[in-house]
Simulated scan of single mutants.
Amino acid sequence: MNGASRRSGAEVRSGVEVRCGRDRAVGVVLTDRQEEDGVVRFAVELRAPGLTARLAEVVDLGPGGGLVGFLAGAAADFRGWEGERSWRNADGDLALRAAFRSGGHVGLSWVLRPWRAADGAWRAEATTWLEAGEQLAALAAEVEAFLKGEGGDGRG
């Protein structure tokens, strides 16, 4: 089940949280949205047992409508597809792979790789499982609202 939710408040940073339907300890948080001169930057946090990784100042410039376009396209194909779909932002520090599995579930593998580190010091990956149609479409809508800076509760 998609635990995507928008959080707000003075101590809680606004963002979108994606929880894995198979293991609630695995999740991804998009948070700390900033906009300057029309460029939106945000942080991505991966969490899993034994793993916590954060990449600040990710810029959502990539092919096919960016992150939202990738998620919305996968949601539109809720009946499934063969193989794996992939997307990455222009900087290559955020990548996402989507794999459709029987039973109508999609595995989203979120990959963080800081390009600003000249030696490529680390790479982190976590996979969240969501239902292909409604949950994936809701996630795409929440990410779009987050990137546009729109308020509201957004709990799904």
Rank of each mutant, 00 (worst) to 15 (best):
L51P: 03
R54D: 00
R54G: 01
L55M: 09
L55I: 06
E57V: 01
E57C: 03
V58T: 03
V59K: 04
V59T: 12
V59C: 03
D60H: 07
D60S: 10
G62P: 02
G62I: 00
G64L: 03
G65P: 01
G65N: 00
G66P: 02
L67Q: 06
V68N: 08
V68A: 08
G69S: 01
G69P: 02
L71K: 10
G73R: 12
A75F: 07
A75G: 07
A75R: 05
A75M: 07
A76W: 08
A76T: 10
F78R: 14
R79K: 13
R79Y: 13
W81K: 03
E82S: 14
G83P: 15
G83W: 12
G83H: 11
G83E: 13
G83F: 12
E84W: 01
R85N: 05
W87C: 08
W87Q: 03
R88C: 05
R88S: 07
R88N: 03
R88Y: 04
N89S: 02
A90H: 04
A90Y: 02
A90V: 01
A90F: 00
D91W: 03
D93Y: 05
L94D: 06
L94T: 05
L94C: 04
L96H: 08
R97M: 09
R97T: 13
R97E: 13
A98V: 09
F100T: 02
F100N: 02
G104A: 12
H105I: 12
V106N: 04
G107H: 01
G107Q: 01
S109F: 08
S109V: 12
W110D: 12
W110P: 13
W110C: 12
L112P: 07
R113I: 07
R113H: 11
R113S: 11
W115H: 14
W115G: 15
W115I: 10
W115Q: 14
A118N: 04
D119Y: 08
G120A: 04
A121N: 04
A121H: 01
W122P: 11
W122Y: 10
W122I: 07
R123N: 01
R123P: 00
